[in-house]
C-alpha cells in the first residue's frame, strides 16, 4: 500500500475523510496510527489484541466520520476518545483482574518499559520527562493514555482527589505552554 506523501491541513483532511476519500484515510492512518496504537497498547497490554482493537477503532472512525463535528473540537481529540473507549471496552469484556490492582501494576510496567526497552522517539521523550515532573507525568499518562478517571487515580495511588486534579491541571498547562507555537 502506497504511503501517500500529500500534506493536509486539518480542515482539508476532515473534508477528505467526510467524502470517504481513500487518500485522506491513508493519511489519517499514517499520521495517527502510532499515537493511537500506543494508547490502545497501554490499555489492553497485548500486542496482538491491540492490533485487533486498532482495527476496530479505525473502522469505527471510518463508519462514524459523518458524526464528527469540527465545531466541537479537533479531529484528534475525537479519534483518541474512540480509541480509548474501544480499548477500555475490550478489557471489560475480557473480565480480567479488577482495575484497582491494575493501576499500580501498569505504573510499574510503564516504568519498566521506559528504562529497559528504549525504542524510537526515546530521546524526545526524555526531553518531555524533563518538562513534566515525574509525579505529574504519571498522572497525565494514566488519565490521557489509559483513560482512568481522577477518582480512580486518587483511590489507587492514595493521593487526595484535589491533589490529582491540581497536578493534572498544572501538567496540562505546562504542556500547553511547551507546545504553544
Amino acid at each position: 500500500m502506497a504511503t501517500n506523501t500529500l500534506k493536509y491541513t486539518e480542515q482539508e483532511l476532515v473534508v477528505g475523510l467526510k467524502r470517504n476519500d481513500r487518500a485522506a484515510f491513508e493519511y489519517l492512518y499514517d499520521h495517527y496510527s502510532g499515537a493511537l496504537f500506543n494508547i490502545i497498547l497501554k490499555i489492553v497490554r497485548d500486542e496482538e489484541r491491540a492490533g485487533d482493537v486498532m482495527q476496530e477503532v479505525f473502522l469505527k472512525i471510518w463508519k462514524r466520520m459523518a458524526l464528527y463535528n469540527p465545531e466541537k473540537g479537533r479531529l484528534f481529540t475525537w479519534i483518541v476518545n474512540i480509541a480509548r473507549n474501544t480499548a477500555i471496552d475490550a478489557t471489560r469484556t475480557e473480565t480480567r483482574k479488577p482495575s484497582m490492582v491494575d493501576v499500580n501494576d501498569r505504573t510499574v510496567h510503564d516504568q519498566a518499559d521506559s528504562t529497559e526497552r528504549p525504542d524510537s522517539g526515546q530521546e524526545e521523550l526524555r526531553a518531555l520527562v524533563g518538562l513534566l515532573r515525574p509525579e505529574r507525568k504519571q498522572l497525565v499518562d494514566l488519565a490521557y493514555f489509559q483513560g482512568y478517571t481522577h477518582e480512580e487515580i486518587a483511590n489507587n495511588l492514595n493521593i487526595p482527589l484535589g491533589t490529582v486534579k491540581s497536578r493534572i491541571r498544572t501538567a496540562l498547562q505546562e504542556l500547553k505552554q511547551y507546545f504553544a507555537v
Binding site: G34, F37, N38, M54, R74, F76, L125, L128, L172
Partner: peptide, 21 residues
C-alpha cells in the same frame, strides 16, 4: 489544550505491525 495534547500524544508513538494497515 487539544493541540498540546495532540502534540504530546504524537511524541508517544508505537507503530502497529505493517500488515495491519
Amino acid at each position: 489544550m487539544e493541540e498540546a495534547m495532540e502534540a504530546y500524544a504524537l511524541k508517544h508513538q508505537k507503530a502497529p505491525s505493517k500488515q495491519l494497515k
